[in-house]
Amino acid sequence: MKDEKQHIVSFKEHLGTYLGLLLLTALTVVVSVINADLKMITIFTALIIATTKAILVAYYFMHLKFDHKIYRIMVWIVMGLFTSFTLLTVLDYITR
């Protein structure tokens, strides 16, 4: 591990990530305006788009994709735990 050369993310990759993020931002705004009647669909699409953006930021800007895989494992475990606790709580309230 120590001998591995640090991966340098190029300016181009960062710019590409940025453009992708802008596109997704535009998409989430447009979807929220168009889907005005479908409340549940809007919140789910909004969360799915937000999560896609979050993964882009984490993998490229935060170098997760290029770092040692222990960071990826840690992040996915923490996010998985958080998501399951959120789901459990929300499902509890929805089904009351």
């Binding site: 989430t28 919140i43 909004a46 969360l47 788009i49 937000a50 979050a54 930021v57 984490a58 935060m62």
Partner: peptide
């Protein structure tokens, strides 16, 4: 940088959840 990206990540969720309820 990591700290700054986290701040960005939180905003990514705050924005649709507060501004884009339609």
């Amino acid at each position: 940088g990591l700290y700054w990206h986290l701040v960005d990540l939180i905003w990514i969720y705050l924005f649709p959840l507060f501004y884009l309820i339609n």
